[in-house]
Computed example of a mutant assay.
Amino acid sequence: MTESKRTPGEDAGSSRTPASTPGVSAENSDGGYNAGMAVFSYIIGGIIVWSLIGWGLDNLWGTRWIVLAGALLGAVGGFYLSHMHGLTSPRNMSGKSGADSGPSADGNTNAK
């Protein structure tokens, strides 16, 4: 049985996904791939479900445009769900934003 190398901040009970797994980066255990697939499935699922509802209403009422409105509603709804679940916003695993905010530690703003 081989021992896996652990970083100093990692506890013994946590299981990390190896970096060799396709679609999963070493920095982020769930990776952007999983978030992308979730966004894709929300949008495609919304389009399919609401298109079928629109198709049924078109057949019921004898129209031809509700299926298109249903597809657009499904796409917008899928994007809204993925945005509300936090899948469309960029993530930074260090907990900080990409740019520093607020004054520096020494109180100097470094403005020129």
Rank of each mutant, 00 (worst) to 15 (best):
T2H: 10
E3L: 10
S4N: 06
K5F: 09
T7P: 00
E10R: 13
E10N: 02
D11C: 07
A12D: 15
R16G: 01
P18K: 15
V24I: 15
V24A: 03
S25W: 00
A26D: 09
E27Q: 09
G31R: 11
G31T: 05
G32N: 13
N34I: 14
G36L: 13
G36K: 01
M37Y: 02
A38C: 14
V39L: 06
S41N: 10
G46N: 03
I48M: 09
V49C: 05
W50Q: 04
W50H: 08
S51T: 13
L52Y: 11
L52A: 12
G56H: 00
L57W: 11
N59I: 02
W61A: 14
T63F: 09
W65T: 11
I66T: 10
G74D: 07
G78T: 11
F79K: 01
Y80H: 12
Y80T: 14
L81S: 15
L81A: 14
S82I: 00
S82F: 01
H83I: 00
M84C: 12
G86R: 04
L87Q: 09
L87I: 00
P90H: 06
R91L: 13
N92I: 02
M93F: 04
G95R: 02
A99S: 06
G102S: 03
P103K: 02
G107P: 09
G107A: 06
N108V: 08
N110I: 04
A111I: 07
